[in-house]
Amino acid sequence: MPVSKRIEVNDLNVYYGDFLAVEGVSMTIEPRTVTAFIGPSGCGKSTFLRTLNRMHEVIPGAHVRGEVLIDGNDLYGPGVDPVLVRRQVGMVFQRPNPFPTMSIADNVLAGVRLNNRRMPKSDADDLVETSLQGANLWNEVKDRLHLPGSSLSGGQQQRLCIARAIAVSPDVLLMDEPCSALDPISTLAIEDLIEELKQEYTIVIVTHNMQQATRVSDKTAFFNIAGTGKPGKLIEYDTTSTIFTNPNVQATEDYVSGKFG
C-alpha cells in the first residue's frame, strides 16, 4: 500500500520566461484528503498543479521560485531528478490520454515497465487486475485486456488513465480537470472513484465545476487573477464547506455564488 504524503508549499512563484504567472502561493495539503482548486480560467490553478510534479517544466521557459516539500523533501532541491518526482506524484489530464497503440493491459503496465523492465507474467497480471479494480474499470474490460486502449469510451479511457497512474503506487495523485471531457454518467463514476482513492492517496484536483468541488473535496483553494497580464494568486484556502457557505474574502463569495467567472 502506498504511503500518502503531506504536501507543503512555501511562497511559490511560477514563471513562464520573465512572465510571473502565479505569485506567492503557500499551502499545506494533508495526506489522504481531496483538495480542489477552483477559479476562473487563466488564474493559474492548472499551472500551479503542474508545479507539484514538475510537469510545468515540459513548457520551455517555465520555472519556479519557492519550495514544494513532500514529507519534508524539496521537489526543487539541488540534484532532484524530475523523472523521479513524477514517479512519486502521478497525474491525470484534462482529456483521457491512453497510449493509442498499446493494449489496455499494456497501458496499465506502462509506468511500471519504466521503473523495472522485467516483471514475472503472474505479477504483471495481478497488477493489471488490482489497478483496474482500483479504478473501477476491471469488470468492464476484463474480457478484452488485449484490445487497444483507444477502443474504450471516453469515461472508460479516463479511468484507464487513473489505473495507469495508480499502478506505479504514487504518493500523490494530481488531477487536472479530469471530468471536463466526460458526460455526466462518466463524471459520476470518476467522482465515486476519487472518494475511494482518498483512502490511500493524497489527491489534488483542479475543477471548473463548483458542484464537483463540493461533492468530492475536503478542502478547497480559490485562485483568482486581477486582470490580463497580472499573476494568478491564491485568494482563499479553507475547508470546502467554509469556502462555499461562509468564505472570508468577498471575491470568493462572488465567485462561488456565480457573480463572476
Binding site: R87, F93, L114, N115, V168
Partner: peptide
Amino acid sequence: LHEEAALALGA
C-alpha cells in the same frame, strides 16, 4: 497529450 502521458509516468 501522449508525450505528457509518458512524462507524467516518470519517463
